[in-house]
Design a protein around this nucleic acid. Structure first.
Lengths: 205, 205
DNA sequence: TGTACATCAGTGAACGCGCGTTCACTGATGTAC
DNA sequence: TGTACATCAGTGAACGCGCGTTCACTGATGTAC
């Protein structure tokens, strides 16, 4: 990828890719600008032609993550249509699939300590995936009689929390959290039981 | 706290406390041995009288966290007895209460990047709280007819994941995750819906 | 097709900094007599 | 009660290191003529 000589060709993206690889390997704190530059075959100073500094590079990695995430969520939602239930379950699976396939992006987004209010372009990108989950929850909630319908933001917050918890505890190896069940199984069954509790799935199993 | 002169009196615990305060303020990666020593009014080299190094100090902070956590969980469980349902719900609340009251400990335990297999004494301490949650889930599951009973470890993994997710996303300020609902409300309602899905709470609300 | 030149991506050396860790030391404390 | 001494918790100076960042520069590229 890229040219060979003095000019790299696509250094900007190569740096983002190197950062993501490093974050995947060592976590967001293990990543250093210097090492990302070395990985891309370039002097640390060259980074400053493309980014304002270390934080700006991480932010770009996170931004790309939010973008991919938003696209995956929208795609999953569309694929489950017109069934609100199928669409909702597909977004749940997409969340976990994203975390598994793009661990560097996931960590840049959720574990790098970036604050969204300091990065408006990040906040915007983050909005998109969130909105899709909210929409899926909203549509599904509308299946319920009005008086038994939970507020959709609460509904989606529950699902988001369980998904995120499964990722952090059982997909990534947070200390001492081995489980006989795989993350996908855990999330699938957990959401299933939750939906049954809402009356959106038939009782029993 | 402690003596004033050349000898500190209780430097070991003072260093742990300083580390916890720093982790609370800046996260586990923002903590430095040097600053913890300064906070305790002591030279960095003095730390080595009491700990093997930086990681050992964090590990001790995490160990104390696991201990407090285990005690809180056991206490909550006991308080809810003899009702399996009350005991279970109390442990759920205790999880969140712990994260809120002891954020430094919580982060040292779950976000410091310590691996339990490198610290056997940590793995042991971690076992205790986990075991209490498993027990509460087990007892509650026994309320169900055998054929409708989910495996207790799966059951407790679901609850643990949701609790952890609520803490990370809605208690701590993970980026862009504002919600109109407080963490306690979210966890309470989320667990309620989940238990209803298991048939452990009456349908409807 | 060939030459002059502007552009600007990347170089390389240097900086100040704070880190974790080491080492020989010093001085406060407590005990033996 | 007073003195000598052993203990050992904490000092302070030093280290090597890698970090993020800056700066004047250099050399590859593409364009104008």
């Amino acid at each position: 990828m890229g040219k060979q000589g003095y000019h790299h060709g696509n250094l900007r993206q190569a740096l983002v890719d190197a950062a993501l690889a490093l974050i995947t390997d060592k976590g967001p704190q293990g990543f250093t600008l210097t090492e990302a530059a070395k990985e891309a075959g370039v002097t640390p100073a060259a980074v400053y032609r493309h980014f304002q500094g270390r934080e700006d590079l991480i932010a770009e990695a996170a931004r790309q993550g939010y973008q991919i995430f938003g696209e995956l969520m929208e795609h999953a939602y569309a694929k489950g249509q017109p069934s609100p239930l199928a669409a909702f379950e597909a977004t749940g699976r997409a969340y976990l699939a994203f975390a598994r396939r793009f661990p560097g992006h996931y960590q840049a987004m959720f574990e790098s300590g970036l604050t969204l209010q300091n990065h408006p372009e990040l906040a915007l990108a983050a909005q998109r995936g969130r909105a899709t989950l909210d929409l899926a929850a909203q549509k599904l909630a509308e299946q319920l009689p009005v008086d038994k319908r939970p507020p959709a933001p609460m509904f989606s917050a529950h699902i988001w929390a369980m998904s995120h918890g499964v990722v952090e505890l059982f997909l990534r190896g947070s200390p001492g959290t081995r489980s006989p069940f795989g993350p996908e199984d855990l999330l699938e069954t957990g959401i299933g039981i939750y939906l049954r509790g809402l009356g959106l799935l038939p009782p029993d199993r």
